[in-house]
């Protein structure tokens, strides 16, 4: 009887501790984003009010409207008492810096990068994981060593290369290098996943009369979907956040800036408008966060077989 009771207490105690730990981790991971979200919902200027409000008493979507360039002059006028910049000028500037363009650019760049780097690295991963040839490990290391090179090292010649190709100020100047920035990591992740699949798949397929390319396309790829998926997410996120190259090759032109480059520009132009900057941050994180959240199970599963498995 007493043993049973103590067991129940123990269970309840454990449950309590588990909840506490979960809450602690949640506070650690989410507080910064929570505060940015709260700032983004404050009316303009309220972010400097002391005492700080952890959550705005009157949340408003005004900052989001400003960031997306759909704010009206009158609205800016009522909010900007004391500001040196006239509302009409402000409205024009806000419109010219609308965050819609960078979001669209980033979507184009990241999707293209994810698609092409998956295509290229699944081919190379297949060769490394499942085909017989000499210098297999050397090939892998050749690819991996490339990925260790800091962008700071390659930025200047890459910039000059893009110039001689006439690609500066185009999205292609971000897409092409980013594909290959992600290929080594993707190859590694996918190769590890391919290696998990039984090796007699190919033999069975050959018996059924499949050609090598068909084996790759119709047998291996579908089976390795989780691995491909997590590699794709890696590539997508990598190019979504890539800053140094994007800011160099976009050369300050808003029409071709991706989110990180535009973010820096935006935060310089509206240095004191932290409600706006926060709204821009939320917008640029929301999409990738949502995507990763929905697919997190696959991402982690893909990684389980991936780079860090012993």
């Amino acid at each position: 009887m007493s043993a049973k009771l103590s067991h129940r207490y123990r269970t309840q105690y454990t449950y309590l501790m588990q909840t506490v730990v979960t809450i602690l981790i949640a506070v650690f991971c989410l507080t910064p984003m929570f505060y940015i979200l709260s700032t983004s919902l404050k009316p303009r200027g309220a972010e400097y009010m002391i005492p700080l409000e952890l959550w705005p008493s009157k949340p408003t979507l005004q900052a989001y409207r400003a960031v997306l360039g759909i704010v009206e002059e009158a609205e800016l006028a009522s909010e900007s008492k004391g500001s040196m910049v006239l509302p009409a000028d402000q409205a024009r500037i806000v419109k010219s810096l609308s965050f819609v363009t960078p979001l669209r650019n980033s979507l184009i760049v990241s999707s293209a990068v994810a698609a092409f780097s998956l295509l290229i690295s699944s081919l190379s991963a297949y060769a490394i994981a499942r085909l017989r040839f000499r210098y297999k490990i050397q090939s892998l290391i050749f690819l991996q060593l490339g990925a260790m090179i800091p962008i700071a090292v390659t930025i200047a010649p890459t910039f000059m290369l893009m110039r001689s190709l006439g690609l500066l100020r185009t999205l292609l100047a971000m897409i092409i290098p980013n594909i290959f920035y992600n290929v080594p990591m993707s190859t590694w992740l996918i190769a590890c996943y391919f290696a998990e699949l039984p090796f007699d798949l190919e033999d069975a397929a050959k018996v059924d009369g499949y050609k090598p390319i068909q084996i790759f396309w119709k047998v291996i790829i579908p089976l390795a979907a989780p691995g491909l998926f997590s590699a794709g997410v890696f590539a997508f996120l990598g190019s979504w956040g890539e800053f140094m190259l994007a800011s160099a090759v976009s050369m300050g032109i808003p029409a071709v800036q991706t989110v990180p480059a535009a973010m820096l520009n935006f935060s310089v132009q509206f240095r004191y408008e932290w409600t706006w900057i926060s709204a821009a941050i939320i917008l640029s994180v929301a999409l990738v966060a949502f995507m990763t959240l929905v697919f997190q199970r696959w991402v982690i599963r893909g990684l389980t077989a991936g780079a860090v498995k012993y």
């Binding site: 650019n105 184009i108 293209a112 092409f116 290229i120 100020r169 185009t170 999205l171 292609l172 897409i175 092409i176 032109i253 029409a255 071709v256």
Partner: peptide
């Protein structure tokens, strides 16, 4: 093929 694949992406230009 690699080059051509990169071709048709929209490229806003000044």
């Amino acid at each position: 093929a690699t080059l051509a694949a990169c071709g048709p992406t929209p490229t806003p230009q000044v």
